[in-house]
């Protein structure tokens, strides 16, 4: 019976993967590809948020800062130092992982919500740094002219190419995350959700576990930042503000706990809301403008509606559908 379910899930994932990867073959619509590429970037960050919030039970209000650090660091070393793009990606990952470690170690040693507070402060400090650090970040005007990703001498400059690049990274990140969830550490995280005191009495190193997950999630955000910078070619502080951090938390909450699929779907939906016209043909320009104007309210209402009417978020709904399927 378990085997059957596994096969069904594998087939479903294969189908989803195939359709995601075939998009650039089916359309040349640059706007649509760009929007969907941006969705992929957010999926990478939310994979980390899902591990952090949905599995380790921690809230970060500063992940946009890691996103920003990854973007600026990568853009800086590539444009100013002339390093290859791959080195930019590596720097983004290493810096954000190190930053995550420095932030998480002291705040997770203490019990309580110190991590949420520390990340909130960190996000604010970094926002100021992005604005004031003109030498590196270009200040409030941002950095432009960041070169496209290139490796093995090939510059990935087409919309389709960038789409593939970002979604390949997203697939890799999701693979890492799902392996982690199914490992011993993942079982420990599930236990932690059931009862922290119980997990401790089973001899689990909870602080170490939370720190590790935080570092991984920071590195995912760093990777996303680097991809974003080179794909879009322009970055400015507003892309990495507290507002974005909160949106990322909203994706994790909306997605539901103990799930990767739920938060990924939430990331897809929330990222698409302001760009609904990219995938819904015939949606009038003014309708989209209205949505964008009311974006915050639409987010707020969506989240409240899900909390009220869909217990367990999207993950909860998915589980109920799966349970119905297996009863039949």
């Amino acid at each position: 019976m378990h085997r059957n379910v596994d096969i069904k899930v594998a087939v479903l994932l294969g189908l989803i993967g195939a359709s995601v990867f075939s998009v650039p073959l089916l359309t040349a619509d640059r706007y649509m590809l760009r929007v969907l590429t941006f969705v992929g970037v957010n999926v990478i960050i939310v994979a980390g948020m899902a591990l952090l919030f949905g599995y380790a039970g921690q809230v970060s209000l500063g992940h946009a800062a890691f996103y920003g650090i990854g973007a600026y660091a990568s853009a800086h070393v590539v444009t100013v130092f002339g390093w290859p793009w791959v080195a930019g990606v590596a720097i983004a990952i290493v810096l954000t992982a190190a930053g995550g470690l420095l932030l998480a170690l002291p705040s997770l040693r203490l019990r309580g919500h110190y991590l949420a507070m520390a990340t909130l402060a960190f996000g604010e400090i970094m926002r100021v740094a992005f604005v004031e650090g003109k030498g590196v970040t270009g200040g409030p005007d941002g950095l432009s002219g960041i070169p496209f990703p290139s490796f093995l001498g090939i510059e990935v400059d087409s919309a389709g190419g960038n789409y593939w690049l970002v979604w390949s990274a997203a697939a890799a990140v999701l693979l890492i995350a799902s392996n982690l969830v199914r490992s011993r550490a993942g079982r420990a995280m599930l236990a932690l959700h059931g009862s922290e005191a119980g997990a401790m009495s089973c001899g689990m190193d909870l602080t170490g576990l939370k720190v590790r997950v935080f570092v991984i999630s920071a590195a995912f955000a760093g990777l996303a930042g680097s991809l974003y910078a080179h794909v879009v070619g322009f970055i400015s502080p507003s892309t990495f503000s507290l507002h974005v951090s909160v949106l990322l938390v909203a994706m994790a909450v909306l997605g539901g706990t103990r799930s990767l699929a739920g938060p990924v779907l939430a990331a897809v939906i929330l990222t698409m809301i302001p760009f609904a016209d990219a995938v819904i043909p015939g949606l009038s320009r003014s309708a989209v403008e209205t949505i964008q104007e009311w974006q915050e309210d639409v987010y707020g209402l969506t989240i409240i509606a899900v909390m009220l009417f869909v217990p367990g978020g999207i993950a909860g709904a998915l589980r109920r559908i799966a349970a119905k399927g297996s009863v039949r």
Binding site: A191, G194, S195, A197, G198, A199, S201
Partner: peptide, 11 residues
Amino acid sequence: VPEGRMLFGPM
């Protein structure tokens, strides 16, 4: 074995 058992309820 802690006071109040502290089991992993959903598991």
